[in-house]
């Protein structure tokens, strides 16, 4: 199967959760500034701006 053909079988670009959806919770380990794994308490209780990025 060509790369192009394979790509046509997949949905459009995945951009993560959409407006109106609940942001998913996974037990992401802390890298900096946190002691516990990522959880729902990380952003409930007050509004949050969540940045997904890479240092590269």
């Amino acid at each position: 199967m060509s790369i192009l053909a394979a790509s046509l079988l997949l949905p459009l670009l995945s951009q993560g959760p959409a407006v109106g959806e609940r942001f998913p919770v996974h037990p992401f380990p802390p890298v900096a500034g946190a002691e516990r794994a990522f959880g729902s308490l990380a952003f409930t209780g007050k509004p949050a701006l969540l940045h997904v990025f890479a240092s590269w």
């Binding site: 670009l13 995945s14 951009q15 993560g16 959760p17 959409a18 407006v19 109106g20 959806e21 609940r22 942001f23 998913p24 919770v25 996974h26 992401f28 729902s40 952003f43 409930t44 209780g45 007050k46 509004p47 949050a48 701006l49 969540l50 940045h51 997904v52 990025f53 890479a54």
Partner: peptide, 23 residues
């Protein structure tokens, strides 16, 4: 990449319940 993002960076504004209100 459990968030299943294909590109970064991307920012999500969430309300106090964890619902995405803006990307």
């Amino acid at each position: 990449d459990l968030l299943d993002l294909e590109v970064v960076p991307r920012s999500f504004l969430l309300d106090a319940r964890g619902i995405v209100v803006a990307v």
